[in-house]
Design a protein around this nucleic acid. Sequence first.
DNA 1: ACCTGAACACCGTTCAAGT
DNA 2: ACCTGAACACCGTTCAAGT
Lengths: 295, 295
Amino acid sequence: MANGSRAIRPQSSVWLSERKPPRRKADQQPVGLDRLKIVAATIRLLDAEGLAGFSMRRLAAELGVTAMSVYWYVDTKDHLLELALDAAMGEIVLPIEAVAPAKARVVSPPASQPASQRAARPAEAHAHLPAEPRDWRDQLRQLAEESRKVLVRHPWLSPLMGDYLNIGPNAMVFTNAAQEVMRNSGLPVEKLSSALALVTHFVFGFSTLEGRFAVSCREEGIAQDELLQEVMTTVKDRPDFDGTREMFAAQGEISVEEMRDRDFTFALDITIAGIEALRDAAPRDAASQDPPERA
Amino acid sequence: MANGSRAIRPQSSVWLSERKPPRRKADQQPVGLDRLKIVAATIRLLDAEGLAGFSMRRLAAELGVTAMSVYWYVDTKDHLLELALDAAMGEIVLPIEAVAPAKARVVSPPASQPASQRAARPAEAHAHLPAEPRDWRDQLRQLAEESRKVLVRHPWLSPLMGDYLNIGPNAMVFTNAAQEVMRNSGLPVEKLSSALALVTHFVFGFSTLEGRFAVSCREEGIAQDELLQEVMTTVKDRPDFDGTREMFAAQGEISVEEMRDRDFTFALDITIAGIEALRDAAPRDAASQDPPERA
DNA sequence: ACCTGAACACCGTTCAAGT
DNA sequence: ACCTGAACACCGTTCAAGT
């Protein structure tokens, strides 16, 4: 089994199985382990060694405990990963007040997040506190950028998002916020899910690659620009590489990070411009129509 | 090791290690196994049992051979998966003649592809044959739709695309075709990679979810609409589900597949409209500018 | 209620050996 | 040149047992 193939069914989700009763009977002192600690250690390990390097036995060792102890708090490796997934999603700083009960949010402990992160984030409850509601375009950009940050910070997140239903409390809050933002765009309701899909999938795919690239660099102890150079030179003798080279050349002499930031924001520019264009076009009932021609 | 974490480095790619010399010495009869057969069996197994269900031992059994025989033709499981990845990418029907040498394309055998597939595809060389070059918007749509088809047909493709560099011959042909299409949009060169990223990542993410959902349904022996109903009812008592429910309701009484087709094409509508809008806007040199306001 | 140890059925891969 | 068999160092998880 393991992770990878068959966990999308609702029944198989942690969030739908009844909770284990709260641990720590009143008269006995807490014995050390609990779900929060386990999830925290899980995230720490995943950050440090990646999804492929993570195992239940490794986790147990990290917790100074026998391999099977963890199984008292968690039904299965899959469920544990689902918990870690949702905890990490809680790190995304949302652009608007969420509708959902904040108490439901599972918080991943500060230990797992590098203190050097530039955005000053609240120490304990990450949450969606900031800034008054502004223009939906700004909100959308912030949503995308904050998602990107978290996805890159936890490169194991992307694969897990594909593997599980992703309906934990934090994921729900996120989804609601995203929907709210989209609703503010003025797009008709039946188009909202589509526009949302465009944005979220773009951010997801983009950040997946960015994260993986960063991991490779870290593993090799090499700067991102160096690795890019290396890849380019290894591949450049291929006969079919001209187009790609030209596209790179057109970017000028900038760092990988600059290039990526440009790409990211311009892709959002396209999305926003497209939404505005179709929103302002005469409303038609079928989405399969051609978009308005302007050239 | 296994698949999952550290294969993005160019040195670790099959395509960059020197090839094993061609098998089958002239005077001895072929002994049964070869790379093509192995990759074919790999794809068949991946289709049938998913990425998590695939193992070298299982593959060897399928080939009627001892576990270690495969290792004579393939250095490692990762390399084999990389071969399968590129072979599957070759199934994507491209909208335009590719620039690259067609001989390089590795073809996955007809055995692996369901005969019931509606688009009549050439029996042996999938290739990019069809239709004369048309409007770039049509080309882009076709590129997206054909990618989607293949990604859904082989649900194990998406995770692999995230795991490997993806620079095999078929991947290169695909990339070139995609770049060519984008170039036809009239967008300035330095914006091409960005627009391309938007499209490919959207298609990738969208198809990943679609494929996973289909797999779950097949495994449970249940129709897609049933499973959706099930998920909806299991989750609907959540207090924070109102927005999602409303968005679903707005779609009217249509099947999951219809809904997805709508979403997909409308997301492309947005992308295309956005590209046209920004292309026609006054050229500015920085991409970080605000898009033109129209409301 | 919580944790352990041994065991089962798997992995990918190495290595020496067969033909 | 091609394939085998045994072995190593791992997995996730079950199950009976300890305290």
